[in-house]
């Protein structure tokens, strides 16, 4: 194995350039290094002005999402060896405006977050101590609670790239996380936004979101499952009097 490997990093410094450029950094090729280790080596030793987000180094904070050799991935979980002999192309996440270098603007997600009402909608006061919820009831929605808001699914989603209003994979999965929670009674309230044009029906079920998800949340599965549910509800609302829907 060679001693070094080249990172081809997309740079964008709006204070000095109008267009993104590419800068190559030669870094040690270490078997145990992730791309994040490589970037930190660059920042600490070669170029202290390179900007990127990171935090936990263990795939739980969801800060270091970027495009590596064309795929949306977490830099802390992407090993240099899997991209050997390089060069390794490192770019910002797609589908988001770039602030500087590998740092992208993510406010769209936070702005849309309230639309899916990600909290317990209760129709009665909460218990004095705890709810009762059986393990099987937890299993119904636990998968959808694993989301780390890393935005890889948005970067992977071809629909989000074209339709900025699309709620997007993670938010629909989050809506399902509450819809399927036995303590929640908000599914009717969430129906309107989810079945609106910018909700589930925008999704063309390419499935890229689930392939990109580092936590196995399977947003594509959540969307597909909800499409069925929404269709049933629509039929019911046409056929049945309100009380029996």
């Amino acid at each position: 194995m060679a001693d070094t490997i080249t990172l081809e990093v997309a740079r964008y410094r709006p204070e000095q350039e109008d267009e993104p450029t590419t800068q190559c950094y030669e870094i040690p090729m270490r078997r145990e290094w992730t791309v994040l280790d490589g970037l930190n080596h660059v920042k600490d030793r070669l170029d202290g002005t390179l900007s990127f987000r990171w935090s936990c180094r263990m795939g739980i904070c969801g800060s270091c999402g970027m495009t590596i050799d064309g795929d949306p991935v977490l830099a802390c979980e992407t090993f240099l060896t899997d991209h050997h002999p390089g060069p390794v192309r490192v770019e910002p996440l797609r589908n988001f405006p770039v602030i500087r270098d590998l740092v992208v603007e993510l406010t769209d997600f936070m702005a849309k977050l309230p639309h899916v009402m990600p909290w317990l909608v209760a129709d009665e006061p909460p218990p004095d101590t705890e709810y009762l919820q059986k393990p099987a009831e937890v299993d119904e929605y636990q998968q959808y609670s694993m989301c780390i808001n890393c935005m890889l699914c948005y970067a992977a989603c071809p629909v989000y790239g074209l339709e900025r209003d699309f709620l997007g994979p993670a938010l629909i999965a989050l809506a399902q996380r509450y819809n399927l929670d036995s303590r929640d009674h908000g599914d009717h309230d969430r129906l309107e936004i989810l079945s609106a044009p910018e909700g589930i029906w925008d999704c063309t079920f390419v499935g890229e979101c689930s392939r990109a998800c580092p936590k196995g949340v399977d947003p594509a599965g959540a969307i597909q499952r909800y499409k069925l549910e929404a269709a049933k509800r629509t039929v019911r609302s046409l056929l049945l009097p309100r009380g029996r829907r």
Binding site: L120, T129, E130, L132, Q133, K134, P135, E137
Partner: peptide, 23 residues
Amino acid sequence: APDRIWELETYGALFDRTADGRI
């Protein structure tokens, strides 16, 4: 501490459960 945990549950927190459905 117990009140704070129960309160967190009313905010929507998921916890692993015992077989009979308690935290």
